[in-house]
Every structure is written in structure tokens, then in C-alpha cells.
């Protein structure tokens, strides 16, 4: 089976600071890969490269057989057109640390917007899909609420529904519980776990070590812009090989 996501030799700099120094990562359909590491290790940047919220200078990302963001033309590396990139972004779904719901729209409108504007779906069809997904994340009852009327955990669940309703090839989760009050974390993790169990391909940045251990098929430990150690969760958490990872885990909460 050919991989759904292939990242090879990925380099990314912010000005003079190189934050990704050659990343190689491969994911099969249904894989759940957790990126862990201290802040500044480049894990969020890596995630944001996959849907081109960040440009990258070197290397390639291939998603479902398509080269993401750039093409080679006569030996030149060219950025794709805005329209092409928008279309490719719709192949991925992303949930953000700060939810980023559209504050002037109800929950269901938030979910419908991409279906109508990107996928050109008729309103009725979009509404049906949005209702289905809001139901799935346990937000069916609150579909007509505005983000400002919802708790953080509820907002994040709507945000996840908004991303996944687009039927993406892969879901990207960027520290989706970091901005939540502790008592609201579980409801969001439960939704993510359900999606994982159903075979959704997911790449997630997380500080929830216990969750990463339970839900991942592979865990990737990043340090200073490189993949420092990777492996099955039992191995990464049970028998870390490198001193750096041992140190990181010793300082992490479980």
C-alpha cells in the first residue's frame, strides 16, 4: 500500500532561524501519529507545513499522491497558484489550539461554510452533513448557538466537526486541548479518540502524553528541528532509547 503522506527532507526557516532541519516522515492510511517534544522543537511548524499555513524552502510533502504547495518545472521549484493551494488545503482538516471558530456564525453555519463555499455543495446537503457531524461530536443540541455562547470544550468540538465535515484525507490537530480548562479536556480527547478508532488518518501535536500513548500508532519525538526518536508508543514511552527523550518524558506530566 502506498503511503497517504510522505514528508521528505523538509527544511523550513523563519528568517535566519532554521526551525525544521530535514524531516522525513511517512504515514499510511489510518495511522495516528503524535508529535511530541518541548516547545520550539518545530512540531507545530511541521504540522502547519502539511496544509501550507507555513511555506517551506526545501524538501517535499506528498499527500494522496499530490505534491503539496510546490511543483518542479524545468528544474525550478515553483509555488502553486493560490487556487490550487486552496484546493489542496481542503484535502486536510485542521483543529487549532485557539479553536478559531467564526464568531459571527452559529455552530452549524461554521460547519457549513466550507461545504458551501469550497465544495460548492447545495445548502440542504451541507446542512445535513453539518448536522450529522455536530451530532457526532455531541453538539447537535447546540447547533444554533454562537461560539461566544459555548464553553471552550464545546467550541473545540464544533471546530473539529467543521474540519472533518470537509471529508479530509488527513486530520491535523494542533495542541487542541492546550487552551482548555482541565475539566474540559476529556470531552475533546474523547472526540479525537473516537475519530482515531474509526480509522481517520491523524497527525497530532500534543502535550497529553497519556493520550498520545493510548491513541497513537506511532509517536515522534522532535528536538531542535529534527526527529530525534520515533517508534511505537510502547517503545517511546516504555523504553526510550535516547537520553534526550528520557529527560523529556521525566519532565512531562502523565
Amino acid at each position: 500500500m502506498s503511503p497517504i503522506l510522505t514528508i521528505s527532507g523538509l527544511h523550513k526557516s523563519f528568517g535566519k532561524v532554521e526551525v525544521l532541519k530535514g524531516i522525513d516522515l511517512t504515514m499510511q492510511q489510518g495511522d495516528v501519529v503524535s508529535l511530541i517534544g518541548s516547545s520550539g522543537s518545530g512540531k507545530t511548524t511541521l504540522l502547519r507545513c502539511v496544509n501550507l499555513l507555513e511555506d517551506f524552502e526545501q524538501g517535499s510533502i506528498e499527500l494522496a499522491g499530490q505534491s503539496i504547495g510546490y511543483k518542479q518545472e524545468g528544474g525550478q521549484r515553483r509555488r502553486l497558484s493560490e487556487r490550487e493551494i486552496a484546493r489542496q488545503r481542503a484535502m486536510t482538516g485542521m483543529a487549532f489550539q485557539q479553536f478559531n471558530l467564526f464568531p459571527h456564525m452559529t455552530a452549524i453555519r461554521n460547519v457549513m461554510l466550507g461545504l458551501i463555499k469550497t465544495k460548492k455543495m447545495p445548502k440542504d446537503e451541507a446542512r445535513a452533513i453539518a448536522e450529522k457531524w455536530l451530532e457526532r461530536v455531541g453538539m447537535g443540541q447546540r447547533r444554533d448557538h454562537y461560539p461566544g455562547q459555548l464553553s471552550g470544550g464545546q467550541q473545540q468540538r464544533v471546530a473539529i466537526a467543521r474540519a472533518i465535515a470537509m471529508n479530509p484525507q488527513i486530520m491535523l490537530f494542533d495542541e487542541v486541548t492546550s487552551a482548555l480548562d482541565p475539566e474540559l479536556v476529556a470531552e475533546v480527547l474523547a472526540v479525537v479518540r473516537d475519530l482515531a478508532n474509526e480509522g481517520m488518518t491523524m497527525l497530532l501535536v500534543t502535550h497529553e502524553m497519556r493520550f498520545a500513548r493510548d491513541v497513537s500508532s506511532k509517536v515522534v519525538f522532535m528536538h531542535q528541528g529534527r526527529i530525534h526518536e520515533e517508534g511505537a508508543p510502547e517503545q517511546i514511552f516504555g523504553a526510550p532509547k535516547t537520553e534526550r527523550l528520557q529527560g523529556f518524558l521525566a519532565n512531562s506530566e502523565f
Binding site: 496544509n51 488545503r89 481542503a90 482538516g93 478559531n100 461554510l113 466550507g114 469550497t118 467543521r162
Partner: peptide, 8 residues
């Protein structure tokens, strides 16, 4: 960014 992420 949320708009970009849903392909707008």
C-alpha cells in the same frame, strides 16, 4: 487561518 484550512 481557519478560513484557509477549510480551503477558502
Amino acid at each position: 487561518e481557519a478560513g484557509l484550512a477549510i480551503g477558502l
